[in-house]
Design a binder for these strands. Structure first.
Lengths: 394, 394
DNA sequence: GATTTGTTTGTTTTTACAACAAACCTTCAC
DNA sequence: GTGAAGGTTTGTTGTAAAAACAAACAAATC
């Protein structure tokens, strides 16, 4: 009920190293989630032998992933040696491209950001290449143990390390991943913003979410992206392009055109551009002169038309969320993006729609706003690397 | 990138047996899919050692799962000993409840049906209990190596072995699984019809689908159910109730009420009852005096109104399918149910809608009608057992 | 004689198990 | 109050067992 099998392709057989790999991951993740924790406690919880845990921890310590941080309190016997992830060493470079700003940051294994640079995103792709490459090189220095994660607001080709399409700038086939790899020699992993944010929630979100195996992140921004976590991993589908629920049909005649050109996508009804456009319409103009931040601020100060625009959008947001809730039956759906600042204004409308369910008995999916403090996409870019590092620990 | 990790719960550590379990599954599935096949060829393809494969095959032979069937042709050396799944021994009892008929069948490991009894499904739940139990007991005889799989058109609680709700008869909390287990002592596995059919496609469908890791079955019947196969396994979500995309929103004012009472579900727009109702409306009646089989036959003979009812329904079917295609990006979506008999009439309308996609470059999901000859739900009930047996081979 | 298949024998990796030493707490006699 | 004895907990060490790997070998065939 839990193992992969299938055949046809070369389904990973289990050699000896596989056993160690699996257990190493489990131990590493115990240290990550439950740190500070002792060898003995890991052994108790995993039902591995203490000796086995010790061997694995030695392994991890040599690899620079784990370190000892003194002893804990005794419970009647020898004091435990506490372990945690090694911190303070630059390990990850995150590159986070959003329509407005681009961030390049360096973090350690725990996701602690040690250095960061932010600059405005330019439609000039040559300029962007230059900027990003120079920052990455600067941060990388001589260190060749780093890995680079890139989050982009569009469709990414994980394997090829390039981006297929960014709607906002209409960039196609941007090979930023390959460029970084070629110029620095560092491993690169690239993914879209919604998947990145989903990983950020899994890694840096509230513990309630850290422990959730199945959840979905709905990222409301210029467009709408969905990041789907199945069994603690991003579901990417066959072509790596899964999670584009932003383009599912939720009704004709949306206020704006979707980035794909249609008017019936979820994105066209419920994204930030739908909000700004609705607000414009309510003001009798077909153009909106306010951006999403301003509209939210206006609404929070009681401006009727801004509130109306938000609540109307929340309705459509709720329709899409209910579809996801019914179809996936995840534990939780996390809504992320600027719109969560107005959560108290919109949560009621969202929940009203989203409580559509077949039967009341079925466990209801919890819908909650993202609680990630710092820029979720930047943390997401970092999480891309961490999730790989921790999944197939070197 | 491929291992589960997470913690909190007791994530399966790898002991020695785990290695053997994994490789046993892989070998067993090679024999299943590629039979007849020799030990040497399995070794070549899996990159396991010949000696290891031999040991595992011995294991499987002792367990009665595989058997030798003579030798194959030489390619310049000793002739290979060919292996296949052991056939001809009753191994699985499948119970398939549909709104019209209920089938109880006995099959061997290869899914060959050896005995079968069919009787009309009755709304009288006591009668159903009696009928099913007596047939199962009769088939089971003294044999205690059998396992029972149950497919039902509603929501199943896998763990508890009961069904939560069957819309068609409005049965709630039917404990048929527990009853069978109590009276026969045999292990029971229960699931809804769409998941069952998805497994049937994976196990008995065309080889193209057998080899697919990610696909979705859309089962069009009284209602609409979706069975989602992720990485060769049924995705059941947190509560086991995933795959109810039949209740996703696709537009107001459906011709009939959904089984959940609303008029905006996919099911209300695109199920068989939507077809019959539309046909009724086209004939100026709010009741339909024809069932789905008759309408399809009429359409195939060129009856205009029947064709219109089918094509209108195909449109809505296409909307839902496109949502799934965009969101999941599966290799294939398989449409199952009576409606596939009219595939040549509806495929165009479905594909027109379903080719909505973000970018043309993204690999297009293939939409195809089910090719399962015999009753797919019966094969599905059997597959439930097989998939468990083959996943954690005893 | 070369080649392919399947088996046998010994090696390696890795966990399980058991024994042990170190460090710490409790307590009880003096 | 103090210090020695006894019990617990932690982490390590050494050995056994499981299972894959590697290489050699026998059988069967071209």
């Amino acid at each position: 009920m839990k193992k992969i099998y299938l055949s046809g392709a070369n389904d990973k057989i289990a050699r000896h190293g596989t056993m160690r790999d699996i257990n190493r991951q489990i131990v590493l993740n115990y240290i990550r989630v439950r740190s500070p924790i002792s060898r003995a406690e890991i052994a108790r919880e995993t039902s591995l032998q203490r000796s086995t845990v010790s061997a694995i921890v030695d392994d991890l310590a040599v690899g620079g992933l784990v370190e000892e941080i003194g002893t804990g309190d005794s419970t009647g016997g020898r004091k435990p040696t506490l372990l945690r992830l090694r911190s303070g060493t630059p390990t990850v470079i995150g590159v986070d491209v959003t329509p407005r700003v681009t961030t390049v940051a360096v973090a350690d294994l725990t996701g602690n950001i040690m250095q960061k640079e932010v600059f405005p995103t330019s439609p000039d792709i040559g300029f962007m290449n230059e900027q990003i490459l120079s920052k990455v090189k600067q941060f990388a220095g001589q260190d060749s143990n780093l890995e680079v994660g890139i989050s982009i607001p569009g469709i990414a080709d994980q394997l090829a390390g390039r981006m297929v399409y960014i709607p906002y700038f209409q960039w196609t086939d941007w090979d930023i991943g390959q460029r970084i790899k070629a110029e620095t020699g560092l491993p690169v992993i690239i993914d879209n913003d919604a998947n990145s944010v989903a990983l950020a929630e899994l890694w840096f979100g509230p513990t309630e979410i850290k422990k959730t195996r199945n959840f979905i992140v709905v990222l409301v921004a210029e467009g709408i992206g969905t990041g789907i976590i199945v069994d603690g991993q991003v579901y990417r589908g066959e072509s790596g392009a899964a999670g584009e629920f932003g383009h599912m049909f939720v009704g004709e005649n949306a206020p704006v055109k979707c980035s794909c050109g249609r008017r019936d996508c979820w994105e066209a009804h419920a994204s930030e551009k739908a909000i700004t456009h609705r607000y414009g319409l309510h003001n009798g103009s077909s153009n909106s002169f306010f951006d999403i931040d301003q509209i939210i601020s206006l609404a929070q100060n009681g401006e009727k038309r801004a509130i109306r625009a938000l609540k109307e959008t929340a309705h459509y947001l709720g329709i899409g969320i209910s579809n996801l809730s019914i179809g996936f039956s995840p534990q939780t759906i996390v809504v992320s993006g600027n719109i969560v600042r107005a959560w108290d204004l919109i949560s009621e409308d969202i929940n009203e729609l989203a409580s559509r369910s077949i039967r009341k008995e079925i466990s209801v999916t919890r819908i909650r706003p993202s609680e990630l403090a710092d820029s979720p996409t930047t943390m997401g870019a970092i999480s891309l690397v961490l999730s790989r590092k921790f999944a197939s620990a070197t």
